[in-house]
Amino acid sequence: MLNSSQLINASATDYLNVVKRKSVDEKDKCLNHRAIFIEWMTQYEKLLRHLIVGFEAKPALQDELFQDIALNIWRALPKFRQDASVKTFVARIAHNVLATHVAKAVKTVKADQDIDSILNTDNEQASSEVTPYQALNQQQRQQRLSQAIRQLKLEQQQVITLALEGMSYQEIAEVLSITSNLVGVRLQRAKATLSQLLEVK
């Protein structure tokens, strides 16, 4: 039979083992999160960069937003449910940061004006006539497209950037927590406004 000091020693050893195991588990979890974070960021860097361009024109602010999104992904990572899609999870976090950024201030106006003047100068050099969207070179088209997207309403910006990334209605609905029908409605409107802005007709 064990005496009281042996019992105390045994329970102290058990406690130390539990603490040690917990600490090892925490370390493993942290290393695991690090690996997952690096994997996700590597896989979805392009998607995130493209989404950011649809909301902010200034390169310095784009970098800042990218870091903010990374920070939020890192924070939210332990709460990720395995049954959810990583792509929609990452896109949802990005859209949270970007929507807040857009609502915060009209920071893109000046940068967009700058791009506008660059494009106009380029166009004047290319042709004296009014240049249709298709006649621009790819870089100019990309700039014109992202500029036009930034001029849309926030709700339209959200659906159009995700749709341009090739996401389905269902995926967009998951990212934005809205119904697929509403995605269709908003996308149709966004496309109509975009075509006017780009003068693709």
Binding site: R34, M41, E45, R49, H50, W74
Partner: peptide
Amino acid sequence: LALTEDWQSQPYDKVDIKVLFNKTRRRI
């Protein structure tokens, strides 16, 4: 389709994800 192609082929500056990870942890 043309718009999607233009959008998806946009160039971007790749970042060192390990550096980004360290920066993120430093901020927290």
